[in-house]
């Protein structure tokens, strides 16, 4: 047993450096020493840049015009508040988050239940690896290749549809189809992640309790509510949180597929921001929007953590 041997090794340890370490070990600073690296990362790559960004958000500053930054108070904020494009993008982003995360969660849970207890599946390891591949591929590649797959004239999808007598659909160019088509790609990519998370969540359920339920012939619904859910929900909720986070940030994929087009039907807030920041280099305005998104992100996270904490509290 690994743990025991670790202890034995400890026991046999020659304390040649013990004196040196004593002061360190007994000092109250030890736990703080441990978190210093994380705090440093946090301060240098987050706190300082974020403060800088907040500062910048009060300025009118674009790199490209060559003019020095000019303090303009909250007029960036006012502009964003009155900006239909931003609000349109935000609304679309919420639809996007809801649609992708929702479908992926439901589909992921269903498929995970299908794969639960598949221990005897021949070649299970390979099957699961194949199942997980979509999320392992660079979104840049996925975007480029799905653009080709969706193409009306050269795309395999339209070819397969034509075998069933369905007329060509310009998935990415058509107003009605662009958003669902892009959603589908995201669902394809990330449902495997939700399968993985749900499998992990199911793994959190003690085997003994499940066996007991089997012996008691407890109906499925009761097993779900009384055994699986209480144990599995923590991991599942965390998985959904991670998915929400990544979905909110989606950009590479849509950038490759449609650039937010046609018109603005697939334009998400991250893409709009990217345009302003790194095509227009309007740093002041973009910083303001970035700060707003930061607050939205914090709000999102709080809600999830609140739910997570609730479920933790219940468990204890």
């Amino acid at each position: 047993m690994e743990n025991v041997s670790a202890l034995q090794r400890t026991a046999g340890k020659k304390p040649w450096h013990k004196k040196l370490m004593d002061g360190f070990d007994n000092s109250n600073l030890f736990p703080y020493c441990l978190i210093i690296p994380v705090l440093l990362f946090f301060i240098i790559w987050n706190l300082i840049p974020t403060l800088w960004m907040i500062g910048m958000s009060f300025y009118n500053y674009a790199f490209t015009t060559g003019a020095p930054e000019k303090f303009n108070g909250i007029s960036n904020l006012i502009d964003i508040m009155n900006n239909d494009t931003v609000w349109g993008n935000l609304g679309r982003t919420f639809t996007w988050v809801l649609a992708t995360t929702g479908i992926e969660t439901v589909l992921g849970i269903l498929l995970a239940f299908l794969f639960w207890n598949s221990a005897k599946l021949p070649g299970r390891r390979l099957a699961l690896t194949l199942l997980f591949t979509p999320m392992l591929i660079a979104p840049a590649s996925v975007g480029a290749f799905f653009k080709l797959l969706y193409e009306p004239d050269f795309g395999v999808i339209n070819y397969l549809l034509s075998l069933f007598g369905i007329a060509k659909i310009n998935f990415l160019g058509d107003l009605k189809w662009a958003f669902p088509a892009v959603t589908l790609v995201d669902v394809w990519m990330w449902t495997p992640f939700m399968i993985l998370i749900t499998l992990a969540a199911l793994g959190s359920v003690p085997k003994a309790e499940l066996e007991a339920a089997e012996i008691d012939r407890l109906p499925w619904t009761k097993r779900l509510v009384h055994i699986i859910w209480p144990y599995g929900k923590f991991v599942l909720m965390l998985g959904i949180l991670l998915r929400t986070i990544d979905s909110f940030k989606t950009m590479d994929l849509i950038f490759m597929l449609t650039r937010g087009g046609p018109g603005n039907t697939t334009e998400l807030v991250a893409i709009g921001l990217y345009r302003k920041a790194f095509e227009g280099f309007t740093m002041g305005w973009s910083s303001t929007l970035a700060v707003i998104l930061l607050f939205i992100a914090i709000a999102f996270t709080s809600v999830y953590l609140y739910i997570l904490n609730l479920s933790n509290a219940e468990k204890e």
Binding site: M251, S286, T301, S302
Partner: peptide, 14 residues
Amino acid sequence: LSIRMVPAAASVIP
């Protein structure tokens, strides 16, 4: 966790 949630374009600006 909330840092991770900020869109890449926003976190890369600063």
